[in-house]
Design a binder for these strands. Structure first.
Lengths: 160, 160
DNA sequence: ATCAGTGCAAAGCTTTTGCATAGTG
DNA sequence: CACTATGCAAAAGCTTTGCACTGAT
């Protein structure tokens, strides 16, 4: 068993869970993946096509546990389905391409600061915040299909 | 028939739809409502308890049409169900109380400007953006139930 | 050996859709 | 009167759950 596998097992033990195959696979996927944002369905397909059989129900359960443990963050964006992301040190915001679905991350301290100012001005106690910018990314294929974005509900490619 | 009713009928004709009872009722609800943000289910309950019978399917259809016509905007926030809002002149962002579910609106030109800067720096073409701040509002009842917010999935009161 | 975790299948919720009927212009 | 819109009920899509079995510690 490779060392990294041990490390991940420890990571899972640390949050009070047993190091089972499904949990290791899911964690590994998030660590390796070039795509940082994954839906339950995408995780299922990705693991299944790698030969790891695992039920969708288990994936949902693992995702919920990892989220509760603070390992993952859940986002809703505009798609009607939840996507998850490894929670890494810094908070960041998202830039989403409406054509290809690609998600980029960015940080802007000035925006953060202004957000806090708004919250304080209204007497709220802030728990979290989500800023998502939806547009068409710089890729030529996407720029070429700009209009594919407009027709339906001003919105993203929906999976329903 | 009151004059305002005529005006709303015109409003609906203007977007190429027939002025039917369901459409007028839904529009009226959004115009009158103290709550600006409503889900399909809330609209259904609200109209039903006012004596107007109308099927949920129709409400969904009306909402889709109004959204396509640019009369309403759809938001997803963190709840897993969509909420709609009358599209009024200015774009604005949202401040959501995780305890009572209240939604407040705010505008901050400086934040808007910084968002555009981010998008341009990455070569995106911006279509829309959504900034949502989740916290606990100033109401004493909500402040008192702060902890009701934490237990599950970092999140909002979920309806699933 | 014990208790947590998994798979399967069924159920839950929100949202969409097909089709016959009713209503608008 | 022609065509759209509605209601109903069924279906679809995502997510959760009950229960009996499997597996980690």
């Amino acid at each position: 068993m490779p060392k990294s596998r041990h490390l991940q097992a420890d990571h899972i033990h640390a949050i009070g869970l047993k190091a089972t195959v499904p949990r290791l696979k899911v964690l590994e996927l998030f660590k390796d993946a070039s795509r940082h944002h994954l839906s339950a369905e995408e995780i299922y397909r990705s693991l299944t096509s790698d030969g790891s059989e695992m039920s969708l129900a288990t994936i949902y359960r693992v995702l919920i546990q990892f989220e509760q443990a603070g390992l993952l963050v859940r986002h809703h964006f505009e798609s009607g389905k939840a996507v998850f992301e490894l929670k890494q040190g810094e908070h960041h915001d998202h830039l989403i391409c409406l054509v290809c679905g690609r998600v980029e991350e960015f940080c802007d301290d000035e925006i953060e600061r202004l957000q806090h100012a708004v919250v304080e001005a209204r007497g709220y106690r802030l728990h979290e915040h989500a800023l998502a910018l939806y547009g068409v990314c710089a890729a030529p294929e996407c720029q070429a299909r700009q209009d594919a974005v407009l027709p339906r509900r001003g919105g993203a490619p929906r999976g329903r």
